[in-house]
Write a protein that binds this DNA or RNA. Structure first.
Ligand SMILES: [Mn+2]
Ligand SMILES: [Mn+2]
Ligand SMILES: [Mn+2]
Ligand SMILES: [Mn+2]
Lengths: 227, 227
DNA sequence: ATATTTTTTTAAGTATGCTTGAATTCATAA
DNA sequence: TTATGAATTCAAGCATACTTAAAAAAATAT
């Protein structure tokens, strides 16, 4: 009971729960996976039978412990591949996600552990997401804020970007706004809720839409009070 | 029309033709792929329809140019992965084949070309097999002899080993008889057709069965006549 | 030439994972 | 409380890739 499809279902269920703190609705899951509601109905039955999810209809779908372990394993393979592809093979930042989306389903434990070791047991992937460890634990990710919530005049570091936004990541690469870049919020335009930020010698205008996909950590200068 | 199954069919058809210089018989193909004759019948129809093979019944199956290009591509991916896994990730010699058997079907052109470049556009895989180039051409492999055909007293270099013989390769690794090892044939025992060979400081007895899986190139010492 | 054996194909069935459209079940708003 | 709409499931069908058993076709042996 570990096929490409089931692995993708488990991953989506897990990620939704992680992002929103609640079980995912069957209709939502169908939309997210681009399949029909009937397909969800079918698959939910299979996953339940195998003890991977618990599903109360009209309530939502949740992973069991067993299902969560499987999901974490897929995510581990995904994120380790992403990091390996960009670090070792120099695959562009914007492309690693879609390559990993395939490889995550075709990698033995032995191979992924070698990749993990080769990379020095990293904690974060190229988009700033935590990489589940072999034992299933997750490095803690801070509570980031999005640029849309940032304060004028403050300094931030870019900590995380949505990995599935290929076009956005191409753009960020092009303008040099990569992960771990430190910048200052120069201006927040009320008119269109866009931001003007400055990093290195670049001044960049960031639309509201983009600002919602950039996850930041505020940089507290030495000597400044935090609170 | 490029699924895991079809890729495996094409590969087998190609390899048989390469090894024996003749089209493969449908029954033989069934045995090689561990499927029923009925499955071959089905698949042969599909592959023919897509112009990948030409099949005259009771005569045998042959790749078309298009089919051969596809086969070469799969083999390219397979052999590049093998080399990458052993060189970069230090996966044991005896295990790279089975890992590559999976990855060969899940690797984009972009990724395999990066791997090729990373390895410096190599000509041979870890078992001494030629790696098809991006353009479909094959580096020439010499006409090797097997140890079973070797002459007492002569010197040879181990040039190629059957990649699917996992146990054999484990054994060769254990005793240190790896690819490109140079050795002398000390003795050939008529009794069981076994060989005694010497390389570095090791004297090894090689059974007849093993001797047939080791492909060699004779080493002509400087000053010796060839013929 | 005929019989036997081998090769090949057909037919029906299984499993996964989808689809669409029609039923059904449930939640909720009037 | 009942009507409406949303969520869910059922039924039938499709595609891939297999299986076994039986039938058919061709090759080979006598
Ligand atoms: Mn990703
Ligand atoms: Mn996936
Ligand atoms: Mn191989
Ligand atoms: Mn394969």
């Amino acid at each position: 009971m570990s096929t490409i499809s089931t692995e993708n279902y488990l991953k989506k269920i897990f990620n939704h729960n992680k992002a929103f703190g609640e079980k995912i609705n069957a209709v939502k899951l169908a939309q997210e996976l681009s399949v029909s509601n009937a397909a969800i109905s079918d698959m939910a039955k299979k996953l339940s039978k195998h003890g991977l999810i618990s599903y109360e209809k009209y309530k939502g779908i949740e992973l069991t412990d067993k299902g969560e372990q499987m999901a974490l394993n897929v995510i581990r393979r995904h994120r380790l591949w992403e990091l390996f592809l960009i670090k070792v093979l120099d695959i562009p930042w914007s492309e690693v996600h879609e390559q990993a989306e395939v490889l995550e389903h075709h990698t033995s434990d032995k191979l992924i552990d070698r990749i993990d070791e080769f990379l020095g047991f990293p904690d974060f992937d190229p988009h700033g997401h935590p990489i589940p460890r072999k034992n299933g634990s997750l490095p803690d990710a801070q509570n980031y804020v999005t640029l849309a919530e940032a304060a004028e005049g403050s300094s931030y570091e870019l900590m995380q970007v949505d990995d599935h936004e290929k076009k956005l990541i191409s753009y960020l690469t092009k303008v040099g706004f990569v992960l771990n870049t430190r910048f200052v919020v120069i201006d927040k335009l009320d008119f269109d809720k866009s931001y003007t930020i400055k990093f290195n010698d670049t001044v960049l205008s960031v639309s509201q839409k983009i600002s919602e996909s950039l996850y930041l950590q505020e940089i507290i200068e030495a000597g400044e009070k935090n609170d």
